[in-house]
Design a protein around this nucleic acid. Sequence first.
DNA 1: TTGACAGGTGACCATGAGGTCACATATTGT
DNA 2: ACAATATGTGACCTCATGGTCACCTGTCAA
Lengths: 121, 121
Amino acid sequence: MRSHIVGAVDESAGDDRVFKALADPTRRALLDALFVADGQSVQALCERHPEMTRFGVMKHLAVLEDAHLVVVRREGRVKRHFLNPVPIQQLSDRWIDKYARPFTRAMTDLQRRLESREGSS
Amino acid sequence: MRSHIVGAVDESAGDDRVFKALADPTRRALLDALFVADGQSVQALCERHPEMTRFGVMKHLAVLEDAHLVVVRREGRVKRHFLNPVPIQQLSDRWIDKYARPFTRAMTDLQRRLESREGSS
DNA sequence: TTGACAGGTGACCATGAGGTCACATATTGT
DNA sequence: ACAATATGTGACCTCATGGTCACCTGTCAA
């Protein structure tokens, strides 16, 4: 009974969409492109991804919209795409916190030190 | 050239595995089961997922292991599975921070207030 | 050693996701 | 009105994925 608002998806169903949307490298690249320059049109995004046709890009954008990771605004015949960080933040709040927060802080720090030393045993 | 250590996967390639591993609800459920009780055997995990055969569970576990989200230890003929939060933490560090941190804090708080009021207008 | 238990391997099938295209629909400038 | 631009739709193909199974390997205990 909630969830008409931007990223307020209904519990796990929405999480699933977000996870699945993020699971594809191309889609992450698209998000990245929007991170570099927000509000780009389909065409602009196509030009940044010559490895794929317009239709491919459109499908991916549809998935991202469906997950509310991207939000659109029409201006005449162009469709501008904007990053919406809310779902990612929610993922972090609901998920990452749960698993990672308790243990890991110290471990990742340790790992970084190990990685930068790189050759011990 | 790095990455022999637990979660120290090679940049985006590892991120991809983690994302893809997390993209499946069953696998998230498995992680959840390990969160409830760490160190479970394949059998134990199968009993918690009667909707699937042992082989299904094993395949999912393999994916999780591949993403270093689960780490194993053999004890005789049983294989114990342990949660490894490092990759999740790294995802948070590399990814979520990048997109979500700048904008969102205030927005999610706003949303929570909106969601709890729920009927304004 | 024998049998029961815990796990692993390769093949197999069905579905869905990524990707492309031929066509259809706005919208804009002239 | 007309053509060019910008996006949308449905069908289609292919391949990776989730899921199952028959069979093999290793381990424990009697």
